[in-house]
Each structure stands twice: as C-alpha cells, then as structure tokens.
Amino acid sequence: MKLIEVKNLEKVYQSGESKTVALDGVSFLVDKGEFIAIMGPSGSGKSTLLQLLGFLDRQTGGSYKFDGKSIEEYSEPELARIRNEKIGFVFQAFNLLARSSVYENVRLPLFYSNVPETAWDSKIKSAIDAVGISHRIVHEPGELSGGEKQRVAIARSFVLDPEMILADEPTGNLDSKNGEMIIKLLDELNRKTGRTIILITHEESLAKYARRLIRMKDGKVESDIRI
C-alpha cells in the first residue's frame, strides 16, 4: 500500500505580474515506513514539496494522493484533522510556544484531537520520555538549549502517533553534535515504530541515515536513489 502518490505535482506562486514556479512536475511514490532525505540547493522547491505533502498548502497542478485519497477530496476541517492525526511536523525554527512549559508545548496537538483527556497525560509524558528530556518538563523554551528545543518539537510531532513525520531542516539551527542526535532520534522513530519520515537537510552526513535520497533542482526531481 502506497502512503503517498505524487504525479506531476506543480506549484506556481503568483504575486501580481510575477510568477514563480516552485515545483515543476514532481512525481514519486512513498511506501509506509520509508525514511527519505530530500536534498537540493535553496530554491529547488524542497520546502514547497514538504508543505504540499503536509497539507499546509494546495498544489496548482498535478495530483497528490495520501492514503489512497486525493487531496482535492478533503475539506479544510478534514485537512486540519489529517495534519493533526496523521502528520507530525518538525521545523528548523522549532516553533515552540514561548511562555509555555515543555509539557504544555507537547500537549498542544492534543487540544485539537479527539483523544479523551484522561489519556493525555500518559501520552505527553511518554513522548517527552522518548526524547530524553523528562528532567526539563516544567521548563519554558527560553530556558532550553537548541538541541533540547528540537527534541521538544520532535516529542510534539509524534505525541499523536502520526503515520508520517515531516522535518524541514530540523538541524539547520543546531551544531553538528546536536544535529546528529536529532537525526538519530528520527531514525529511531522510523526503525522502532515504522513511521514514514521525510527529512529535508543540507548535510550529506545526516542524509546518510535515510534509506532513500531524493535530490531536487529547479522544481524537479534530479535523482531518486535508495541507499
């Protein structure tokens, strides 16, 4: 069963007269449980691709099927539900809520879920435990190091057991040691629970952890190899 089927995906940004083609006919398939790294120079369309895959935006051409169903068939609230239940996001800039504790940050997706509140606490704590920051549970982002912040963001991304985690340069703001630790966490999530992981990175050394490497250039797939 294919988790993702992308065919001739196009995304054109139009502002006034100027047109920017971010994706120019991208096609690939993703199985459940894959760990894919996407690489490419900036402006190659990799972030745009990730956003489309994560239902944060809609394509201007081509088709995108997730779990066998085309994105056009979903309404706005349904897309929000899929983002909540099936997809976890990890961002380069962490995007944690300031003035909220680690616990509260990891709890955030639960607010928008159907999970009964009685089950929240154990889910939150086991996610925080899994990324190894239980000792920081009451701290606010301002008191955490970059590596710790990204670990909180990862805990938040899988607290609802999503099918797929999308990570957009999660190590971009980290030193190499912390960066490697974050990738190892993602690798572990992939190996232990079979979650599909799609990772954007600039660093070849980190891309090696993936089992498949897609290189992009000028909005097109340049190469797609298994490693």
Binding site: E76, A80, R83, N84, N95, L108, P109, Y112, S113
Partner: peptide
C-alpha cells in the same frame, strides 16, 4: 502569525 501557523500545522481548523 507564527503561532497561528503552528496551531494550524498541528491540527487547528480555521474555526478553532
């Protein structure tokens, strides 16, 4: 704006 985007990415619908 950033908080709103984050909430949406984590599953908030427009009505939320």
């Amino acid at each position: 704006t950033r908080e709103i985007g984050l909430r949406k990415a984590l599953g908030a619908a427009n009505r939320d």
